[in-house]
């Protein structure tokens, strides 16, 4: 696979992203009450989707690693966690940008917000566990943690939701009400962000396995 400016995939993806930008800015209508700020929604939802998808990939790759013990599976899990962190960070940053003008607050402990934040902490913890040395022990332990994290997500979500439904709900995120054009823009963003995720994943996996190879060669050199 060719990298950087020489890669046709890179140019294709650039084109698709530009189209997506055009759709978000010009094709999707400006929301009546929220105004132009609502446009951030497309980035927000798409990156949140990728953030959750990436954790599912971490879990799947971890199960595969424990079963087959291939380096590829372990690298995939780590790469997915790293990229997932970037997307979840985007979600956490774009959220308040929209929330402040609309809800008049930067942050609220709504189930989705809380779960997203916990997701971010899980990613960071996972990377801290997996990221250091490249040893089989770390790979194995990180795989176990990755699986536990993913299984814990529904528990976190439902416990926060239950807590919020017992107390009066101050702010509801329900009923955003999308027009067909908005919906098209949203689904396109989700698809494009997913493609971007896959592309980044391939690049990152390549660089992780290169890093490991350099380490192996060095070890051989000094052995």
């Amino acid at each position: 696979m060719q990298h950087g400016l020489k890669s046709p995939v890179f140019w294709a993806l650039t084109l698709i992203i530009l189209i997506n930008m055009w759709v978000i800015v010009f094709y999707a209508p400006v929301e009546k009450t929220m105004g132009i700020v609502q446009k951030v929604f497309y980035f927000h939802v798409a990156s949140a989707w990728v953030g959750l998808l990436a954790l599912a990939v971490v879990c799947g790759a971890s199960i595969h690693y424990l079963w087959k013990r291939t380096d590829q599976a372990s690298n995939l899990a780590l790469a997915s966690a790293e990229i997932g962190t970037v997307f979840i960070s985007c979600t956490l940053l774009t959220g308040p940008l929209w929330a402040y003008p609309i809800w008049n607050t930067w942050w609220t402990w709504d189930p989705r917000l809380t779960t997203t934040l916990v997701l971010w902490f899980m990613y960071v913890a996972y990377i801290a566990l997996h990221g250091g040395d490249v040893t089989d022990t770390r790979k194995r332990l990180a795989a176990v943690y990755g699986i536990i994290c993913f299984m814990n997500v529904p528990l976190v979500f439902f416990s926060t939701r239950w807590w919020r439904s017992i107390h009066p709900v101050v702010i509801s995120t329900e009923g955003i009400g999308l027009t067909p054009k908005m919906r098209t823009a949203m689904f396109l963003s989700v698809a494009v962000f997913s493609l971007l995720y896959i592309h980044l994943l391939r690049i990152r996996m390549g660089s992780i396995s290169l890093k490991h190879r350099v380490k192996r060669l060095k070890a051989q050199l000094f052995a």
């Binding site: 960071v124 913890a125 528990l155």
Partner: peptide, 17 residues
């Protein structure tokens, strides 16, 4: 030192409950 970092995200439901 990783212990609390790994533990807290998993323990959020316990904290709430």
């Amino acid at each position: 030192l990783l212990f609390p970092i790994l533990a807290f995200p998993l323990l959020i439901p316990v904290l709430i409950g």
